[in-house]
Design a protein around this nucleic acid. Structure first.
Length: 109
DNA sequence: CAAATGACGGCAG
DNA sequence: ACTGCCGCCATTT
């Protein structure tokens, strides 16, 4: 299993997401250089789902919607985790998403 | 090599 | 504002 690829790169970025912050698949993809491969980021997260060190709950789509919550053990786990970090979530959507948005290409530079 | 999949993104209606 | 379709890139079958 040579998963040593783009996924590993995604893990690094996701693990660097500060607590109480969120980012989008496209932002991560763009930071990795694969701008447009947002789907790949999601795929990476699918693999990362079995990783404990990957706060996938901090990664949402560009709408700030918890699209990936369906992949969690419980559909409410993701929301509870975010709320526990100070991110308010209503109707599976992050409140003030853009305010919590953490852009790796900007924060990490 | 070709087709299908995927936790997306952008644009058109 | 909401819904639907196409496009992108990488991985899998």
């Amino acid at each position: 299993m040579t998963e040593t690829s783009f996924f590993e790169r995604v893990y690094e970025v996701v693990k660097l997401i500060p607590e109480g912050r969120v980012t989008s698949y496209g932002a991560i993809a763009a930071f990795l250089g694969a701008k447009g491969s947002a789907r790949m980021v999601g795929w990476a997260m699918n693999n990362a789902s079995k990783m404990e060190d990957i706060p996938a709950h901090r990664v949402v789509n560009r709408n700030g919607l918890l699209t990936g919550k369906h992949h969690f053990p419980g559909t409410r786990v993701m929301q509870q985790m975010l709320e526990a970090e100070g991110v308010q979530v209503i109707n599976d959507k992050i409140v003030r998403f853009q305010d919590y948005f953490w852009d790796p290409s900007v924060e990490l530079q």
